[in-house]
Every structure is written in structure tokens, then in C-alpha cells.
Amino acid sequence: MDKDLAQVRRIANLARIKIEKHQEQDLVKKFSAIKNYFDELSKLDIKDEEIKDESNLVTLHEDVVCDSKISLSFSDYLSNNMFVVPKVIE
């Protein structure tokens, strides 16, 4: 099997996306284009490029509590303030 097609099917499977047979070749083409773009990027010579890292700790959030008081009424699946989902035990 074509390597790219196998990868497209695998990604679809991992992402829980159902793809039809007639969609596959188009997706393979798009996927190959993305891969080719990354191949081009990896050819760039960046060995002399310095990553300019400066401490960014000040941009992180302070450890101070802020109550969001969010209402959960947006959910149609609430019971005793808990979200109800189909039973999954793993």
C-alpha cells in the first residue's frame, strides 16, 4: 500500500475521523503537500541561527485565585452539577 495512504488512514483512525474511499486520494495529495513543505523547511540552514531566549517568567500567571463563577447551564447533559456521559470504563 502507498505509504502516504497508510499514514492518512492511520491519522484518520487516531483522530476518530471516518473517511470515505473516494476521499482518500485527495487527502493523500494534501497530506503529501504538507509533508513536502516540512521537507523544504528542514533543508534550511539554521545552524548559525541563535534562539534568543529571554526569561519569560513575568508573562506567566501569578498564583492568585480568581473565581470565574461560570454557569454550567450551557450544557444539556447535567445531573446534580455533574456532566453526564455514556458509560466508559477503561
Binding site: 455533574m82 466508559v88 470504563i89
Partner: peptide, 14 residues
């Protein structure tokens, strides 16, 4: 946290 109660539903506490 998931709370498993009953036969077909689970409850989610975030």
C-alpha cells in the same frame, strides 16, 4: 474525575 454509577452513564467532575 469520573464517577461510574448505574448501567449506562458516567458522571464527570472537573
Amino acid at each position: 474525575k469520573l464517577i461510574h454509577e448505574g448501567f449506562d452513564q458516567s458522571y464527570v467532575d472537573l
